[in-house]
């Protein structure tokens, strides 16, 4: 049944008509044309759809748009200013070649930023365990892990992290 949902996405107030069943990821991709958030599975496992809701990483394929009523949502598009310098976590992924095809990347980066906010200097093992909910088929994770460790340190030294 269609209803109007209102929320903040990347700092801007937005609203749109949704059905009860409309997933947050559908609202972002189809209503708001924020296609940086991807869908790679239908069982809530791959993590390509990770965004932040009220500062915490969630799988936007496993949340209804109506559940985000009134929430502050952050997507990959909001991490760095349009056309501007990369957020430290994004920059670390580039520097350490933490992406190949780029499809899992937005979810990986959003997940990594959530980790970095909780843990300023995660160990390799902590990063690997944190990324349990993000599947990458290209990189073998080696460079993603390096990137997340470096990105977390860069965020801790004050160069970013204010993404929500």
């Amino acid at each position: 049944m269609p209803s109007t949902v209102k929320m903040t996405v990347n700092g801007k107030s937005v609203s749109g008509q949704v059905e009860g069943r409309t997933l947050l990821v559908q609202f972002l991709r189809e209503t708001l044309s924020l296609t940086g958030t991807h869908v790679g599975c239908d069982t809530s496992q791959c993590g390509a759809c990770v965004v932040h809701v009220d500062g915490r990483s969630v799988k936007s394929c496993t949340m209804l748009a109506v559940q985000a009523e009134g929430a502050a949502v952050a997507t990959i598009e909001g991490l760095a200013p349009a056309g501007g310098d990369l957020h430290p976590m994004q920059a670390a992924f580039r520097e350490h070649h933490g992406l190949q095809c780029g499809f899992c990347t937005p979810g990986m980066v959003m997940s990594a930023v959530d980790l970095a906010k909780r843990n300023k200097s995660p160990s390799e093992q902590e990063v690997r365990e944190w990324l349990e909910g993000n599947i990458c088929r290209c990189t073998g994770y080696h460079n993603i892990v390096k990137a997340v460790m470096a990105g977390a340190r860069a965020m801790a030294t004050g160069k970013g992290g204010d993404d929500d």
Binding site: S44, Q45, G47, V50, R56, S57, V58, K59, T62, M63, S111, D114, L115, W130, E132, G133, N134
Partner: peptide
């Protein structure tokens, strides 16, 4: 349980 995103929700 699950993964960090599942634990958040």
């Amino acid at each position: 349980i699950g993964d960090p995103q599942v634990r958040n929700r």
